[in-house]
Structures are given as C-alpha cells and as structure tokens.
Design a protein around this nucleic acid. Structure first.
Lengths: 192, 192
DNA sequence: GGGTGGGTTGGACATGCGTTCAACACGAAC
DNA sequence: GTTCGTGTTGAACGCATGTCCAACCCACCC
C-alpha cells in the first residue's frame, strides 16, 4: 500500500466506525480493528486522532456536497434544480451522515480542526443554494429580494428539519421534511 | 440541606460545568469540585451521570421554554407574540443554552434518557409556536394552510440559523437571524 | 548477502472516566 | 449516654482513552 492508499484506508475505516458509534465515539483502537491493523499505525499517518476524525467528516460530508452539486448540474431548470437539491439533502439511507453533522456542530466549539471543516462545508452548501437562486433570478422564474438570506433560510430550515428526523426518530418523517421544504422554497422564491 | 436542595445544587453545579465544557464533557468529578463536595455524593442522589446530565439539560432548556411562554403570554396580539417568540429564542447572552441543545441533539442517539427529554422539549416548543399560529388564524391576521407544518418550519429554521451562529461563530450574526426569521414568518403566515 | 530504512506491531504509559463501597460524622430518638 | 441512620467522604476498581516507543519485519539497494 502506498502512503496515500493507507491514509485513505484509515479514513474509510474511521468512517465505517463513526457510522455506528458516532464521531466522538470513534477511537483509535476501533479504527485499527476495522482495518485489521495495529493502533500505532494510525499515528504514523496522522498526527492526532482529531485529525483523523476531521478527515473522515470532511470526506463523508464533502462527498454528499459533491453528489448534490452533480445532481443539480444534471438539471437546467432552476425549479427542478431546487427540487433535486432538497431531495439530495435528505437521502433515504444517509441518516448517519446527518448524525455526523450533529456531532460536528456540537464538537465544533471544542475541536478547532473540526470547526474549520464544518464551517467551510456549511458555507459551500449555502453557496450552492445561492447559485440555484441566482440562476432562477436571471431566468425570471424566481422572485427574491435578498438571495443570500433566502439561501441561508432554506438551508437552515432543512438542517433544522433533518435534525428532528435524525435526533428525535419518528417525531416527524423524512417525507414530510421533503414536502414541507419544497413548499417553503416555493413561497420563499415566489414560484408559481 | 434537604434532599431536594441537594439535588438542585447538583443540577446547578452540573450546569455551571456544562456551560464551559459541554454536556458530554461534564464529569462527576467536575460537578463535585464545582459544588465543593465529594464525587460519591452525586451517586447518592442520582442513579447515574446520564440522569444528572438529563436533569441539567431539562432545567436549562425547560427554563428557556418557560420564559418564552411567559413573554408570549404577556402579549395579546399574535403578531407581537410571534416577534416576542423569535426574540426570546435567540437571546443575547444565552449562546451556551444553544450549545447545550447542540450537545443534546448529538448525544440523543447515544443517551436514551437525554433523547426523551430533548424530544419532549422540542415537541413543546413546536406546540408553543403552533398556539401562536392558531391564535392568529382565529384572529384573522394569519393565513396558513397547514399550521402544524408551518410551526415545524419556523422552529426548524430558527434552530438551523441559531446553530450557525453558535457552531460557526461569525459566519452569520445574531441580528441577521432575528431579522431573517421575522421576514420568513411574515411570508409563511401571509402577514401584511 | 549483508545492511539500511521505512512500514508496522503491540504493549506500556499516564490520564481520565463512571461507579462502588467501607468508613466516618453527627444530629435525632430513646 | 448510647444507639441508630442518613448524609458524606475519599479512595479504590475496572475499564477506556490518546499517545508514545522499542522492537520487529521485509523489500530494496550497495
């Protein structure tokens, strides 16, 4: 294994563990066991466990962002793009990514490395929404006074709703979230 | 000290610690030190540390809820009530309560006792918003197809925005959150 | 074929955690 | 004045954590 492959294997293993135990509950020994190697190896490639966790979170959350952008780029109509975005923000089988976000938000105040990553990714998500809104404005299909604020509002509502689904299992359902968010987006951007 | 006073003192001490170290980072020894007593005493009044944390979170978050309800009850016009609610959801000096919520949401998946408390409180917040909306509907000042969904949307947006303020310091400001949320509420409920 | 050096091991180390428990303090009851 | 019981102590236990490091393995080079 090349150094890069090994680093990647560590990150993958860390994600596999974090999927069931959460970011904060992922330990060096867990990761080593998941890889079938020794614990010392991890510190040969990463300076600290925090770095491993930050890299793992970045890969998982960054991957979601990339897939969402692709889904958006595949469409040309801003209205459909918005729908695709909302759908991809709440995919059926990726509750565990959202749990990673919950962990990251909570830990951000105490783990600077994680805060940097999570802040940057959140900014990029907002920029992605903003791009859709801008396209719709140029297009004439959207109406909106403050696109930046609208993007934050939309993203925050999705975060808040997704949070309820993941943290408070069964209080509200995933389908409701998608429907409610779509309605809110239509009202927010004056879509017919 | 009566047993009740002692329990209260423990909860207070736990909150004082959680304020700086987070819910998950609050330990038995921290709480004992903050009270100036021994660590064994805590287990004489609480079955486990999880129970202490749940009680602490409940007191802090429940207190916020109570104050918000009072602020709402002090007004009669639903429009003003809504403003009071948004203001009280984002008070200037209580960032640390929001941080407790972040901790609670993240920990809910792993600490059942905490999940029960946080789920119940979230439901009560939503019911509080819903009550305002219902009042506005009876009043004729609000228009809204699905009050329940609207309440969840409003609450979730506030959660999502507040989250950004607390977790990603300086990405967006508290004043923006209040303004943006007020605008969204007006649009959501068709307020003139 | 011997030597070199980086990948890899697995245990040691210090620290911290929640929980338990024998011992102690001390006011109330008899 | 003795007994009792509850509040309280502080050390101990078992376990887990991140980090470190001496030793080992083995492919590669002279």
């Amino acid at each position: 294994m090349t150094p890069d492959e090994r680093r990647q294997a560590i990150v993958d293993a860390a994600l596999a563990v974090a999927r069931t135990k959460g970011l904060g509950g992922t330990t060096v020994r867990d990761v080593a066991a998941a890889m079938g190697t020794s614990s010392g190896l991890i510190h040969h490639y990463f300076e600290s466990m925090d770095d491993v966790l930050a890299a793992a979170f970045e890969q998982a959350a960054g991957g979601d962002l990339g897939r969402a952008r692709e889904a958006i780029r595949a469409e040309s109509d801003p209205v459909i793009q918005l729908e695709a975005f909302i759908q991809s923000y709440m995919p059926a089988q990726s509750d565990w990514t959202m749990q990673l976000w919950l962990d990251a938000w909570a830990e951000a105040a105490r783990r600077p490395v994680l805060q940097v990553v999570s802040r940057r990714l959140n900014r990029e998500w907002q920029a992605t929404v903003r791009d859709i809104i801008d396209a719709g404005l140029r297009n004439g299909t959207f109406q909106c006074d403050a696109p930046d604020a609208a993007a934050w509002r939309l993203l925050s509502m999705l975060d808040g709703l997704a949070l309820q689904v993941v943290a408070h299992d069964a209080l509200i359902s995933r389908d409701q979230v998608v429907e409610w968010a779509a309605n809110a987006a239509k009202r927010e951007l004056s879509i017919a």
